[in-house]
Amino acid sequence: TEEYEYTDEQQAREAAREWREKGYTVTIEEHNGRWRVKTG
């Protein structure tokens, strides 16, 4: 599992979409105004 943090929701969603296209399972969670994208 890798985790990436973004301050911008749009960036987080874009990144998540790219990971999904590569076949990863992706979770996005908002935490204190930051967006965490977890792949695994």
Rank of each mutant, 00 (worst) to 15 (best):
E2L: 14
G40C: 15
Y6S: 02
G33N: 05
Y6K: 01
V37E: 00
K22W: 04
E30D: 06
R34Y: 09
I28T: 03
T25N: 12
E2F: 15
E21P: 00
E30Q: 09
E9T: 02
R20H: 11
Y6M: 02
E30V: 10
D8A: 05
E5D: 10
E5F: 15
Y6W: 05
N32D: 12
Y6A: 02
G33F: 03
Y24E: 04
Q11V: 10
E21S: 07
K38S: 10
D8C: 06
E9R: 05
G23E: 02
E29H: 08
Y4H: 09
R13P: 00
W19N: 03
K22H: 06
N32H: 06
A15K: 11
E5P: 11
R36P: 00
V37T: 02
W35D: 00
E9Q: 07
E14M: 07
T25Y: 14
I28F: 04
W35P: 00
W35H: 02
E9W: 08
T1L: 13
G40I: 15
E14D: 12
T25P: 08
G33T: 02
D8M: 05
E14G: 06
T1P: 14
E9K: 05
G33Y: 02
Y6F: 14
V37P: 01
R17T: 08
N32A: 05
T39R: 14
E3I: 15
E30C: 05
E29A: 07
I28S: 01
G33H: 11
T27M: 08
T1G: 13
E30Y: 15
K22Q: 10
R34A: 08
W19F: 14
A15G: 04
N32P: 02
E30N: 10
Q11I: 09
E18Q: 14
E30R: 07
E18R: 13
Q10M: 13
E2P: 10
Y4A: 07
E3D: 10
R20S: 11
V37L: 07
K22V: 04
R20A: 14
E29I: 11
E29D: 08
K38Y: 07
T27F: 08
Y6T: 03
W19P: 01
E18I: 14
E3V: 15
A16K: 02
Y4M: 09
G40L: 14
A15V: 08
H31W: 10
E30F: 15
Y24I: 08
T1Q: 14
R34M: 11
E5T: 09
A12Y: 01
E29F: 10
W35N: 00
T27S: 10
V26E: 01
E18N: 10
V26W: 00
A15T: 06
E3A: 10
A15L: 05
K38F: 07
T27P: 00
K38R: 13
E29R: 07
T27G: 04
H31A: 10
T7Q: 12
V26Q: 01
R17I: 09
T25I: 13
R36F: 15
K22C: 08
V37S: 00
R13E: 11
G33D: 04
T7M: 12
W35Q: 01
T25S: 11
Q10Y: 11
T39N: 05
E5G: 05
E5V: 11
G33K: 03
I28D: 00
E9S: 04
D8E: 08
E5Q: 07
D8G: 05
G33R: 02
Q11F: 06
E2R: 15
E3P: 08
Y4L: 09
R20Y: 12
Q10D: 12
E9Y: 13
V26T: 06
E3G: 11
K22A: 08
I28E: 02
G23N: 03
R20F: 12
Q10L: 13
E5L: 11
G23R: 01
Y4T: 08
A16S: 04
Y4W: 12
E21F: 03
E14Q: 12
Y24H: 07
K38A: 07
A15S: 07
Q11Y: 05
R36L: 15
E21D: 12
R34H: 09
K22G: 04
Q10K: 12
W35A: 01
E18P: 03
T7L: 14
I28H: 01
T7E: 15
E18C: 07
R17V: 07
V26A: 08
V26D: 00
G33L: 03
A16L: 07
Y24N: 03
T39E: 04
T27N: 06
E2A: 14
G40M: 15
Q11A: 14
E14W: 02
E18H: 14
N32Y: 04
A16N: 01
A12R: 00
N32I: 02
Y6G: 03
T7A: 14
G23A: 02
N32C: 06
R13H: 10
G33Q: 03
H31V: 15
G23S: 02
N32E: 12
Q11H: 09
A16V: 08
G40D: 14
E3R: 07
N32M: 05
W19L: 15
E5S: 08
A12D: 00
E29Q: 08
R36Y: 15
R36W: 12
E30W: 11
T1M: 14
G23I: 01
T7R: 08
E30I: 09
E21R: 05
I28K: 00
V37Y: 01
R36Q: 09
R36K: 14
R17L: 10
R17F: 06
H31N: 10
R36H: 12
Q10I: 11
E29S: 10
G40Q: 15
W19V: 03
W19H: 05
E9A: 07
T39H: 09
K38N: 08
K22T: 03
Y6I: 02
